[in-house]
Nucleic acid binder design. Sequence first.
DNA 1: TTATATACAAACATTGTTGTATGTAAATGA
DNA 2: TCATTTACATACAACAATGTTTGTATATAA
Lengths: 204, 204
Amino acid sequence: MVRNTKENAELTRLKIIEAARQSFLTRGVSRTSMEQIAAEAGVTRGAIYWHFANKKEIFTAMREQVFLPLIDRMDENLQLENIDDPLEQLIQFLNGTIETLNESLETRQTYEILMIKCEYVDDLVEVLDQMLDNCARITEKIEQLYTRAKEKGQLRANQSPAELAMDTHLFFIGLLHMWVKDTGGCRFRKQASELVKTHINLHR
Amino acid sequence: MVRNTKENAELTRLKIIEAARQSFLTRGVSRTSMEQIAAEAGVTRGAIYWHFANKKEIFTAMREQVFLPLIDRMDENLQLENIDDPLEQLIQFLNGTIETLNESLETRQTYEILMIKCEYVDDLVEVLDQMLDNCARITEKIEQLYTRAKEKGQLRANQSPAELAMDTHLFFIGLLHMWVKDTGGCRFRKQASELVKTHINLHR
DNA sequence: TTATATACAAACATTGTTGTATGTAAATGA
DNA sequence: TCATTTACATACAACAATGTTTGTATATAA
């Protein structure tokens, strides 16, 4: 059969994205050819070029599949109303990300691709910019939580929320990087949430 | 002239490495071809294949040019004898790295390539492993410094040197990543050394 | 002084990759 | 029911890139 139904077409689209993710993971983004993605997805390049204009569009689709829900989650999770324990909320937010990484294979793979299987050149530099923007927003949210915590007297006297937020944010970036690179799973993946708690407790 | 003297040959070798660094930076490691490196260096591919077997060997040479001296510096800088202010020593070590990044163009470019212009697949995964090993060694060194600091009563009571070291290490990884990605130079590069001081002071 | 190794340049062969163009059978809409 | 999209598969053309081979002028060593 040459023509699929609309739903089947959507399924092949998803298959292509998943195949791309797998291929990106094992061969890196720029080394994977459309042909390899097609083979992994069990289709021909024709199918791919039907759904996507080029590799970057697949890349973007893969990224959005993971990050659009994640951004939503962040906005939900860091609502500032009705927070009675801001530091606990912060811990839960950070560990929520770790949890998502643990539970969702595609999130895990996508993070790994974005971090160590991808070269940010040409049209992909804008992806980096987006990630930096996102980072800035997260830092803001964290700062708001620390401000709340300070109001509630949860922090030591001389700590400024802005400085704490930056410190926590950088810590978390480092943690995510080590988590992802620790593919063996021994050093960081197991103790990640403990490290988060320890970090926050250092600020109390 | 077809044959150069030994010294000139070494110069072209260095020119090739530098050309590779430039090309890696603008096009990413896997997207740069030998031809492009050759053009940038003002030689032909013949010269490159004379000095290096393939692209990975150039990559390794580029990396060693920066990291071998850096590892030496680390071993010097973190000698444990005769340290009377461990935390200050730690600040100086971390800021020393930032300083090197600020001062040395090739270090800066190499870091950028390793972090966001390189895909760690196939033969390059071993590079990642080496970097992780290096990370582990740095964490150890930091822990030793914190142990000293604890002995000297510079830390708050309930802090374990191991936890502090991990926290500082992750913070620093995050900082380096943001420093490198902040190519505009506004957000992180300017205040990096301040952030280091703030971080360490949080632990006093 | 001469033979040889060196430091490349130039040419070759092969293979991979991309985008596009064309073909086509089935789904969908009128 | 029939025309028209749709969702691909197949074929084509053009180019890039790699590693290797061959050629060669010149250092260098003996």
